[in-house]
Nucleic acid binder design. Structure first.
Length: 496
RNA sequence: GCCCCCAUCGUCUAGGGGACUAGGACACCGCUCUUUCAAGGCGGCAACACCGGUUCGAAUCCGGUUGGGGGCGCCA
């Protein structure tokens, strides 16, 4: 039974790089019918909050990741918050002291800091001196009993090699000579990352540790802990980094980086997941726009690449567009509603008439949507109509003599009608053309501008019915119909 | 500085000794469809970092150089 975990620390929003790690773990678990475990690494008391833990889980769920075991859903190997497992870590840290594989360290943080700076300034390797390593154990225990603060460090053996196989990278080799006696248990009683991680992965029966490349150098340290404890260790797979456009670590400077920003930015979760899957992995059949279950089916760690990838917002947008076109339009309508409310285009309660209109309107603009959020700007054409604010290009066109004649003529045919259907409308446009001997662009373009105040946009065939129908429905911002729009444009042209 | 990892179009990638004239996708450019703009369709530009070795044959294997990235906390 394959068991993997995603182990974030609840210190802020979830970064897409971390999300990618979560997603790959999840794909691997689902593909192999294994378990995906969510473990909260909240041993940094200063920075961890329950609030971020909550947000983190919400964001993960939004993305489409579910977990079989975790702090909120429970499981047989909990608790799943490290802060609730302190006794377990202590027990094993003391066990290592007893076995002689670890020792108490009484150096203060300030002292160590000073030492490190000194070594660094001399161009040396910042490595703990091992000062407390040879303290007599009886004496150390005595000091601890008296209440002196002490951390516990691992006695890292010298001249040994740690070799492990990484599923992505093959055999990796490290000499223990470059590993210092790192801290297992901090003087505040909390475990360090490299210790807690080992204990938890063992207790939770993790079979595959899939994490970012930035953890490669932690792996030999953790293996040393496994060895000292006499435990076998899981398989490792280190995923390549996700970088920003300039090749440095992806950060705010490059654009959106947290899951909630993509959510708010109008991305479909399956599109983001799809895009994330393409960072370091590719489908054997070469297709890129994939349903989640297709990815699960095809996913293999063996197909994960070794080199870092740059996060490409353009391609994400393109993938998002593909997914927008793929899912049922009802869902797109549903997802667009919050954005439209935000703009004040929709009332708090939607009647059937609203829904019906909305459906047609979304259908009309859907091919222009790169993100769901784009619906806001696409819908302006329905709710805002201000001839006096039209751009120079449109103004110039509409003020031409022939344009004026076209618009007036068409208006004279429409002005007594209560409703203009598309067939009727296009028949009248045709008549106008014949009567004025104007055709083509010269005929159509002025009409477009008269109706939208914009030089380009939706095709009139869908636009005209939408404003005609829309004008009969009650919206917070009234939709003007053909007649009203032409009237206003005419007034603008004549200079009133 | 030290340790480790990585290297195919601008970007994501396929490829794993002969199938390579190196394939696909995004972006970009052009054409087309459309009496607008997009979207769509078609086409184009564009890469094996460098040097050496192994081999009949190297993008592919080996070594080095260069470049990039990661790590070196009582953070995770």
């Amino acid at each position: 039974m394959i068991r993997v975990r995603f182990a974030p620390s609840p210190t802020g929003f979830i970064h897409v790089g971390n999300a990618r790690t979560a997603v790959f773990n999840w794909f691997f678990a689902r593909k192999n019918k294994g378990s995906f475990i969510l473990r909260i690494e909240d041993t940094d008391v200063e920075r961890s909050t329950r609030e971020s833990e909550k947000l983190l889980m919400e964001d993960l769920r939004w993305l489409g990741i579910d977990w079989d075991e975790g702090p909120d859903v429970g499981g047989d190997f909990g608790p799943y918050r490290q802060s609730e497992r302190i006794e377990i870590y202590k027990k094993h840290a003391f066990e290592l002291i007893e076995k002689g594989y670890a020792y108490f360290c009484f150096c203060s943080v300030e002292e160590l800091e000073k030492e490190r700076e000194k070594i660094l300034s001399l161009g040396g390797i910042p490595k703990y001196s091992g000062k407390c390593r040879n303290l007599r154990i009886e004496e150390s225990i005595e000091r601890v009993k008296k209440g002196e603060k002490a951390a516990i460090r691992l006695k890292v053996p010298s001249d040994q090699e740690v070799i492990f196989r990484d599923i992505v990278r093959g055999d990796l080799k490290f000499s223990t000579n470059f590993i210092e006696d790192f801290v297992l248990l901090r003087s505040n009683g909390f475990p360090s990352y490299n210790f807690a991680c080992v204990i938890d992965d063992k207790y939770m029966r993790i079979t595959h540790v899939i994490r970012g490349e930035d953890h490669i150098s932690n792996t030999p340290k953790q293996i040393l802990v496994y060895r000292a404890l006499g435990w076998d260790y899981p398989e490792f797979a280190h995923l390549p980094m996700v970088l920003g456009s300039d090749g440095t670590r992806l950060s705010k400077r490059h654009g959106a980086t947290s899951l909630d920003q993509f959510r708010g930015g109008g991305y479909l979760p399956e599109a983001l997941m799809n895009y994330l899957s393409l960072l370091g992995w590719s489908s054997p059949d070469g297709r890129e726009v994939l349903e989640i279950d297709e990815i699960v089916k095809a996913f293999e760690l063996e197909r994960v690449g070794k080199s870092p990838s740059i996060f490409d917002y353009e391609k994400l947008k393109w993938i998002n567009r593909q997914h927008i076109r793929k899912v049922p339009i009802e869902r797109i309508v549903e997802e667009c509603i919050p954005y439209l409310r935000e703009e004040g285009f929709l009332p708090p309660v939607l009647k059937d008439s609203h829904k019906k209109w909305l459906f047609s309107a979304i259908q009309a603009v859907i091919s222009n949507l790169e993100t769901l959020k784009d619906v806001k700007k696409e819908f302006q054409i329905f709710f805002y109509f201000k001839p006096e604010e039209m751009d120079e290009e449109s103004k110039k066109l509409v003020l031409e003599e022939s344009s004026k004649r076209v618009i007036s003529k068409l208006f004279s045919k429409i002005k007594d009608l209560d409703y203009v259907g598309w067939d009727e409308f296009s028949a009248m446009v045709k008549e106008v053309g014949e009567e004025l001997k104007i055709k083509g662009k010269e005929l159509f373009h002025p009409i477009r501008v008269a109706l939208t105040s914009k030089f380009s946009g939706l095709e009139l065939k869908s636009f005209v019915p939408l404003i005609e129908d829309g004008s009969k429905i009650e919206f917070p911002l009234k939709i003007l119909n053909v007649k009203e729009r032409m009237e206003r444009t005419l007034r603008f042209i004549s200079g009133d």
